[in-house]
Write a protein that binds this DNA or RNA. Structure first.
Lengths: 254, 254
DNA sequence: ACTGCGATTATGTATATACATATCAGAAAG
DNA sequence: CTTTCTGATATGTATATACATAATCGCAGT
């Protein structure tokens, strides 16, 4: 089997220059792990063995193994070797799209409507919504918006923006375009937290969405920080049948 | 400004040996990006400039920059340099925990109950649930389980296992322990897809969970593949107020 | 047996060097 | 004035080497 690796390298080393050697080593090992050929706990060949098998230097092997370790597929132990880890934290990557993009992906015309915009001194509730902060927040901007897909309401947006973090927002009127895309261009955010849950629509939200009171809704909340300072908190409320969140996982593509 | 980097390095180069040099370079640059000091489009110093500033070799700088590029924070262009990318795909990492762990994290005793276990030839519906497959599925195992937190039902699990992918499951009786943890130890999975949505509880589910019919629920569905073959599909149904999904994002921790 | 210590081993990081490759600016040719 | 070619440049990958560090094994001495 070690021979087959060596042969494969011999074959392709002059032919396929599209992928680098360390990438091929990485892929080979990853494939053996995800295929189950090398089960959790299996000790993968030492660096110096792979060095021989692939006919390359240790640095090249090391680059591949280091990346596998960072991706969580293997665990490296000095003096002992590298071992296949058991898939533990079922982590998945969740992509958050702009609502306009979401709606247009459904083939429906997108429309945005501002329902209310208020500037006020941050209340206790507001501070809670924005999340833990080193400084006490000052002024905030509160927004209620409605996003339409075609003629039907698609979701309600309830947003709070910290004017301490984004003073430019004070002079903005979000009548024509939604605050989300504008904020992304304005503030470099360094951390975000999402909470996804289900709830019954309260009276007001139900009315906005054209639902019966108590109808099930999907709620996505997002808090964003920029360099430790809270920037914004949004709550999107979708009718239950209108929306779902999709997350995917594939181990270390490189 | 370049001077301050150089000074900082001079200070710490002999003192703090806890982090490696390339890690410090990586952190320095990442901090400047997420703080907004270096805005999207900004051309970060060339490798040879950083080499000078940090008094190290190009390989060390290259390692740091390559990782930042892989993490999507910068874009590297030959002959032109490396540029700060604008945060585009708002990706967040979602950790899926075992239900036992979830319940015990709430400080409640966990209990598991098997409600039904059926072996049958895969129907069209079953094949749809398992997802796209190269081969036509044969036998499947269908399970309905209930997870308790204390005396109250916590969530309903509705699972389908492909016996073509996991033949050992045919001989298992999931009376005492849930199929999820067992499967993880059994099959190395290579890809997973999650769908999170809200819905009204149907009559049966509502009864199992002790809810009024039509009560809002959070539904998490997961499909798992092992080397292109569908392994299992699960649907967890939670009462709306019992559960939420949390996802976090922090740019490239290393 | 038990303890402590040195030798061994595999990984972790860094260096200087080399050549490949994509790309752009500007010179040369039409 | 446009096209083509050439050289400069920054990144991409790979190598041989070196020393640091953590963990383990086995031996020596109590």
């Amino acid at each position: 089997m070690s021979d087959s690796i060596a042969e494969m390298v011999e074959e392709t080393v002059g032919g396929d220059a599209s992928t680098s050697l360390y990438q091929r080593i990485l892929n080979d090992i990853r494939d053996r792990i995800v295929s189950g050929e090398w089960e959790p706990g299996y000790r993968i060949p030492f660096e110096h063995e792979l060095t021989e098998q692939y006919g390359c230097s240790r640095m090249t092997v090391n680059k591949a193994l280091s990346q596998l370790a960072k991706a969580g597929l293997i665990e490296r132990r000095r003096r002992s070797g590298s071992f296949v880890r058991r898939p533990q934290s079922q982590a998945a990557v969740l992509e958050i799209h702009d609502i306009r993009v979401e709606v247009e992906a459904l083939g429906l015309p997108y429309r945005y409507e501002l329902m209310a915009q208020t500037k006020r001194r941050a209340t206790t509730v507001d501070r809670d919504r924005l999340g833990p902060s080193p400084s006490t927040a000052g002024q905030v901007l509160a927004l209620q918006c409605l996003h339409y897909a075609g003629v039907r309401p698609f979701c309600v947006e309830d947003r709070l923006i910290s004017l301490a973090a984004v003073p430019e927002a004070a002079d903005q009127e979000f009548r024509k375009s939604a605050p989300g895309p504008w904020l992304i261009g304005q503030v470099p955010w360094s951390a975000a937290e999402h909470v996804i849950r289900a709830a019954s629509a309260d009276g007001e939200t139900a009315a906005d969405l054209g639902l019966a009171s108590g109808a099930p809704c999907l709620i996505i909340e997002r808090r964003t920080w920029s360099a430790e300072r809270p920037v914004t908190h949004v709550r999107f409320t979708y009718p239950a049948n209108a929306h779902a969140v999709v997350a995917r996982f594939t181990p270390s593509d490189g």
